[in-house]
């Protein structure tokens, strides 16, 4: 089983043109900011929205969408999990899960029995007679997962499945989702704006911004080598673009960064905020990367304080709360920032 798609949609300001391929057993995360068009991609794959162009092909020969034909949602072998579960409020949990079997002609008793099995698999045994309104958020989302999987669809679509849950529930449901996705034999597409979901659940990630794929790769690659500011921010890196010659990178925005590797041509430089050290006076010794900068914002971030810096190079530094207090920093303060060349990642643009 596999899914290959090129999705073209033009709707007002949205100019969407995205290509995706998802192999058997693979989970593809579509990561992107709000309004990037990721949910639109999913609606097209589901058959809820006829695209303006492109094609959707399953298993190499089942054409779901092409310029010539559009197979409606109910004729596609798919399951879909929505952000706010969308369990039918007038049906019991069991009848919700059995719904997809009943529409495909399974007898009522058989459908309910299968639904019961699936409820057990998502740890909801004994809750089948409840109405969706009587479930907790996590329970409802697990029931929604069972409802999507019960027909053993070729394609599983997940639209922000965890974002409506509170942080603690998200953790347990994410773990459960991971287990079911691992078992799932078809092609799964997960839309999310949360990099943690993408890293935890996906085997591959595509990043969509403004209707285009801007980066694709394994979660680890994307996290280590972001190619846009958006992805860099998501994975907690500062991204700088420049041109390398030897071990020196001339930044596009001015200034230079020394790197440990010998590279040439257009490159990205990625800096982890925790690798940036701050001083009140120029540090002794002579680290190659040292810049006089100005503190423009400081926000507590767990046990560290995130310091946004401006000047020759726009950087972010994470310093411990203790150091921050010892330095006695205030907004507008002049500081020296330094990074070891070995702590700077550099890769071609």
């Amino acid at each position: 089983m596999s899914l290959a798609a090129r999705v073209v949609v033009r709707r007002g300001s949205l100019q969407l043109d995205v290509e995706l391929t998802v192999a058997d057993g693979e989970v593809l995360a579509v990561l992107g900011p709000n309004g990037a068009g990721k949910s639109t991609v999913l609606r097209v794959l589901a058959g809820l929205l006829p695209p303006d162009g492109g094609r959707v092909v399953v298993d190499g020969d089942q054409v779901w969408d092409s310029p010539e034909e559009h197979r409606p949602a109910h004729e596609r072998s798919l399951g879909m999990v929505f952000q706010d579960h969308l369990l039918f409020p007038h049906l019991s949990v069991t009848d919700n899960v059995a719904f997809g079997l009943r529409t495909r002609g399974v007898r009522r008793a058989d459908a309910r029995a299968t639904a019961g099995d699936w409820l057990a698999r998502v740890s909801l045994t004994g809750l089948g007679d409840r109405r969706p309104g009587q479930l907790s958020g996590g329970q409802a989302q697990r029931a929604a997962l069972a409802r999507a999987l019960v027909g053993e669809p070729r394609v599983l679509l997940l639209d922000e499945p965890l974002s409506a849950l509170d942080a603690r529930t998200r953790l347990t449901v994410r773990a459960e989702l991971h287990r079911h996705l691992t078992d799932y034999a078809g092609s799964a597409v997960l839309v999310t704006h949360d990099p943690v979901d993408a890293m935890a659940l996906a085997t591959r990630v595509v990043v969509v911004e403004d209707g285009r794929v801007v980066q694709a790769g394994t979660p680890a690659e994307v996290a280590r080598r972001p190619r846009t500011d958006y992805v860099a921010r998501l994975v907690g890196l500062v991204l700088l673009a420049g041109t390398a010659a030897g071990t020196t990178v001339e930044l596009d925005g001015g200034g230079t960064v020394a790197v440990a590797e010998d590279v040439a041509g257009p490159v990205f430089v990625a800096v982890r905020p925790e690798s940036v050290a701050l001083y009140l006076s120029r540090p002794a010794g002579s680290p190659r990367n040292v810049w006089p900068l100005r503190l423009v914002a400081a926000t507590p971030h767990g046990s560290v304080v995130r310091c946004d810096l401006a000047g020759e190079v726009a950087l972010t530094a994470d310093v411990t709360a203790t150091s921050f207090a010892e330095l006695g920093l205030a907004r507008g303060a002049e500081v020296w920032a330094s990074v070891k060349a070995s702590e700077v990642a550099v890769y071609p643009r």
């Binding site: 609606r43 589901a46 058959g47 809820l48 409606p72 949602a73 109910h74 004729e75 596609r76 798919l78 399951g79 879909m80 929505f82 969308l86 039918f88 409020p89 007038h90 049906l91 719904f99 997809g100 529409t103 495909r104 409802r147 999507a148 027909g151 679509l157």
Partner: peptide
């Protein structure tokens, strides 16, 4: 009524008539 329930029904194999009978109508009862 939230039309996305009808989307959900469609992804579960319900054509528009089935969706109307089994989802839409009970929702707007």
């Amino acid at each position: 009524a939230d039309a996305r329930f009808e989307d959900a029904a469609a992804t579960l194999g319900a054509d528009r008539w089935t969706t109307f009978r089994r989802v839409t109508l009970p929702l707007v009862a």
